[in-house]
Design a protein around this nucleic acid. Structure first.
Length: 757
DNA sequence: GGCCAGTGTCTTTTT
DNA sequence: GACACTGGCC
């Protein structure tokens, strides 16, 4: 007899004991509950808590899960962690084999870019032509696929690669060498090193396999190849792997997540028990039906049932506003009045958006209404310059080989060690194979330095030396030492500037974060532990459910959360789906965007409001919008909340005014005509049209653009083709843009122009 | 040799 | 609109 508070399938998942288990859990199906109950049940059956490893997607989820288990079974401490944190811990212990000392640094994306830049310099490659971010992305993708530097270089020789790949093939090995020399890893290395360790050291693999007898992985649909490899290596002897997830909520394909991992689980492991949790206890039937209609349009998926015992609620709303400001103001006012009338609390509300850039208008509007808010991410706390500076000091204290940290702090605050000095020092240190800090301690030996530079370096060397001596105590205390000895905040102390005040506040916040870490019960405290927390902090970590605030975040951050009322902003073409998913005509990418919207919709418990606008200000420019391709799929009645302040997109094109006319919007007409013309994709760019035309017949080109045609450019907005010229690959179009009357010419095969009607 | 200001470029999502 | 880089000035 299952207990009253579990459904039969939830109960089955909790009770299933040994062997591989796949729990396919739709949104709001009580998955977290099942996992915690299952852990408790395992302990109940006599499994030692030490033998259980649970992996969650966020630190916050890990913390909450550990607490829940404690509540169910007081005194039980189970290892719950994210993949990255787990790997960091394992590498502190076993990293020597891959060349890491236990005090290694974790480089974030900007550290990675810095290091790549230096690598490019090493190799005499022009950084302007090969942006470090792009190279970093390639390296990251390779690492997620477990492709080592040597493999990459070899693989590149075998196929005919892109010129960027040729550069990456050279940069990747050197970058990796530099990382190791700095005793550092990037985010992907955490996974890659551990996967390699487990692949190469059978003794360690089987030791850990047996140590972690029961492994539970949540959000399995968003695991990448490296993560899959790690989990699989730890489940060969003890095959008690429980994976939970929902393929419809896979939204991290862009960072290497492989939805196939969950779709293939049954083939990857023998005798898998599959349990489906299809009852949604979170949302109203209206919200769920909307989500279901949308996701049904994904072709690459296994259909599933979404049902709820919940009572019917309010209809899902779709509203059109004039612009982002009107949209934000309306939402802010609505929230205020709902709270003031006592129907809702601040914390009932969440506002989601596709890109961080949209948060600002909303923040401002909420602030105007004096609505308390908390925001995940944005300009993340740990990415602010002053916080990064101080963290860099701590990193250099912990790991004197940390090159990036050294370069960041050596002249921050300014102490007369300029670029030239640093370059000379670095060149000399590299020749001697010395860490920069060691070189700085004996600057006299470095050739070409002025007396002043030598003195300044010496003083810096001594300063760091003294700080290292004090590094064993509480982190907050060490941080205060750094602050006083470097005089870091001196310049801001009595400044009237708002920015400086903010900087001081951020420094204070970091000190109190350190204090909080120092005071955490039940954990071993160390500088490296604090740095690890700081490096692997996530946007959603600091969000609280009970702080009495409205919550703002991106759709990606919203995964796993729920709120009574959800506003989902800017359901507009090129934002959701994002234009980058449309560029390559890759249906898979659009499906991921659809899943992203699905995730957003299914966060809502009682009330869901989707909004879009006539004009959208983005990147400092106001453009006319196109309704999202997803809107017709949702089949929600639209409401016009515009004040007639702007001409709508349709007006300007002399089409019906209604924001979302069922089958007559320009985009739909285009879609229909294109489909009739032979199943061409929904949206297409000039480049794609030109390519296709070429492939068809050389004579019959004008399938592309003709004079008078309306087009949209991602940057300049809507325009009219006023001239065409050239042939085939060299065909050009001249467009006059509606917004500012500017005229631009484009080479058709290379431009991102899209026809819009 | 160091610092600041102006110009140019890029602009999704995140560990 | 934000940030990185370059060039000029002290």
């Amino acid at each position: 007899m299952p207990p009253q508070d579990l459904t039969p399938s939830q109960h089955a998942a909790v009770e299933f004991f040994e062997g591989p288990l796949l729990v396919l859990a739709g949104p709001g199906s009580g998955k977290t509950r099942v996992i915690t109950r299952r852990i408790a049940r395992l302990v109940d059956r006599g499994v030692s808590p030490r033998e259980i490893l649970a992996i969650t997607f966020t630190n916050k989820a890990a913390r909450e899960m550990a607490e829940r288990v404690q509540r169910l079974l007081p005194g039980t401490r189970v290892w719950v962690s994210t993949f990255h944190r787990l790997c960091a811990r394992l590498l502190r212990e076993y990293g020597a084999e891959v060349g890491l000392q236990s005090n290694f640094s974790i480089f974030d994306t900007s550290d990675q870019h810095q290091l790549i830049k230096q690598t490019l310099h090493d190799l005499d490659i022009d950084a302007a032509h090969f942006p470090p971010a792009k190279i970093g992305h390639q390296i990251s993708q390779a690492k997620n696929e477990l492709i080592s530097a040597a493999d990459y270089a070899r693989g590149f020789e075998e196929r005919v690669g892109h010129h960027l790949q040729a550069v990456v093939a050279r940069v990747y090995p050197q970058y990796q060498k530099r990382l190791l020399a700095a005793n550092a890893v990037d985010f992907d290395d955490l996974l890659l090193h551990v996967a390699n360790l487990l692949a190469e050291n059978e003794e360690l693999r089987s030791h850990l396999d047996q140590r972690f007898r029961f492994i539970l992985v949540d959000e399995y649909q968003d695991t990448n190849r490296a993560q899959y490899q790690i989990v699989a290596s730890l489940s060969r002897i003890e095959k008690n792997l429980c994976a939970t997830g929902d393929p419809d909520q896979s939204i991290y394909g862009w960072r290497g997540a492989r939805i196939e991992n969950i779709l293939r689980f049954e083939r990857d492991f023998a005798n898998v028990e599959v349990i489906r949790l299809e009852d949604n206890f979170r949302s109203t039937p209206e919200i769920l039906a909307t989500a279901d209609r949308l996701i049904a349009h994904n072709r690459h998926r296994k259909p599933k049932v979404l049902r709820t015992p919940n009572a019917s609620g309010e209809p899902v709303e779709l509203r059109l506003y004039d612009d982002g400001r009107a949209e934000a103001d309306a939402i802010a006012q609505e929230i205020r009045s709902l709270v003031q009338s006592g129907q809702r609390r601040w914390s009932d509300f969440a506002i989601f958006y596709r890109v961080n850039a949209l948060s600002r208008v909303v923040e401002t509007a909420l602030a105007r209404q004096r609505i308390p808010t908390q925001m995940a991410g944005g300009v993340a706390f740990y990415e602010r310059a002053e916080v990064k500076d101080l963290i860099a000091y701590l990193r250099l204290i912990e790991n004197p080989r940390d090159r990036i940290a050294f370069l960041r702090v050596v002249n921050t605050p300014a102490r007369g060690i300029g670029k030239t000095t640093v370059n000379r020092l670095a060149r000399w240190a590299d020749l001697q194979d010395l860490p920069l800090l060691d070189a700085a301690r004996n600057p006299r030996e470095c050739p070409g330095l002025s007396k002043r530079a030598v003195l300044a370096l010496q003083r810096f060397g001594e300063l760091m030396h003294e700080l290292v001596d004090r590094s064993s105590g509480p982190v907050a205390e060490l941080l205060r030492q750094v602050l006083t000895r470097t005089g870091y905040t001196t310049a801001w102390q009595d400044s009237p500037s708002e920015d400086d005040t903010q900087r001081l506040a951020n420094v204070d916040e970091l000190v109190s974060a350190a204090r909080q870490y120092d005071e955490q019960p039940d954990v071993e405290h160390s500088l490296s532990g604090f740095l690890e927390t700081a490096s692997l902090a996530q946007d959603v970590d600091q969000l609280a459910d009970d702080r009495g605030t409205v919550t703002l975040m991106t759709l990606h951050s919203a995964k796993g959360l729920e709120f009574p009322v959800v506003y989902l902003l800017a359901v507009e073409q090129n934002l959701l789906p994002h234009e980058r998913s449309l560029r390559e005509n890759d249906a898979r990418q659009v499906e991921e965007e659809r899943r992203l919207l699905f995730v957003g919709i299914t966060r809502a418990e009682e009330k869901l409001v989707l909004t879009h606008t006539v004009r959208r200000e983005l990147h400092g420019r106001s453009l006319s919008t196109i309704p999202s391709d997803f809107l017709p799929e949702l089949d929600v009645v639209s409401r016009d909340c515009t004040g007639g302040q702007f001409e709508s997109f349709e007006d300007r094109l002399a089409a019906p005014r209604s924001p979302f006319p069922k089958a007559s919007s320009p985009i739909e007409r285009l879609t229909q005509s294109l489909q009739k013309a032979g199943g061409r994709p929904l949206l297409t760019t000039g480049a794609a049209l030109a390519g296709e035309a070429d492939a068809e017949t050389e004579v019959n080109l004008p399938l592309g653009f003709a004079t008078g045609m309306r087009v949209r450019h991602p940057r300049y907005g809507i325009g009219i083709v006023v001239e065409t010229g050239g042939y085939s690959r060299h065909r050009t179009v001249t467009v006059e843009f509606v917004d500012d009357q500017r005229r631009e010419s484009f080479i058709l095969s290379k431009c991102p122009l899209q026809p819009v009607g």
